[in-house]
Simulated scan of single mutants.
Amino acid sequence: MDLQQDQWWENYQKDENAVLLDVRSEEEVEEIAIPQAINIDFYKGQEFLNELEQLDKNKNYYVYCRSGNRSGQTCMLMKQLGFENTFNLIGGMNEWEGPTK
């Protein structure tokens, strides 16, 4: 599900079963990231899929990237892998106004 920044962040903060997932490259993460996020690089191909498969499918994933494109694709992939609740941040880090590290 695609969510605007305000709704995405508000839902994440209220969700006791939430996981923040950053699917950008390590270089992008080093520049700026949202605190508490786990990073799995979208561009790692099969390794990316393997790492997704190891995640707990019962959690709710709040996924972001630079613009919302990779995270949107990730949410679709996760649905195919059996994840029930994935939430894509529309606009990604390009439009992010929340906390960063």
Rank of each mutant, 00 (worst) to 15 (best):
F48C: 13
A33P: 00
E16F: 11
S71A: 13
Y61H: 05
K57Y: 03
Y43T: 06
L21N: 02
Q54S: 15
Q36A: 11
R66L: 13
S25L: 06
E84M: 10
F87Y: 15
L21E: 01
E30M: 10
K79P: 03
T86E: 02
G72R: 04
E53K: 15
Q73L: 13
D41E: 10
K79F: 05
Y64F: 15
N69E: 09
S25I: 01
E28R: 04
T74P: 12
D56N: 14
L77P: 00
Y62E: 08
I40S: 11
E30V: 08
A33H: 05
G72W: 07
F87I: 04
F83G: 13
E27W: 00
Y61S: 04
Q46Y: 10
D56P: 08
S71K: 01
F42N: 03
A18V: 07
N50E: 15
F48W: 02
C65P: 06
N94A: 02
E53C: 06
I32T: 11
G82P: 10
T74I: 08
V19M: 08
E28A: 15
G45R: 08
R66T: 02
Y64S: 03
T86H: 03
D56T: 10
L20I: 10
N94E: 13
L89D: 09
E26G: 13
E31F: 08
S67T: 15
G82M: 09
G92Q: 04
N88M: 05
F48H: 09
D15F: 06
Q54T: 14
E31W: 04
T86S: 14
F87S: 07
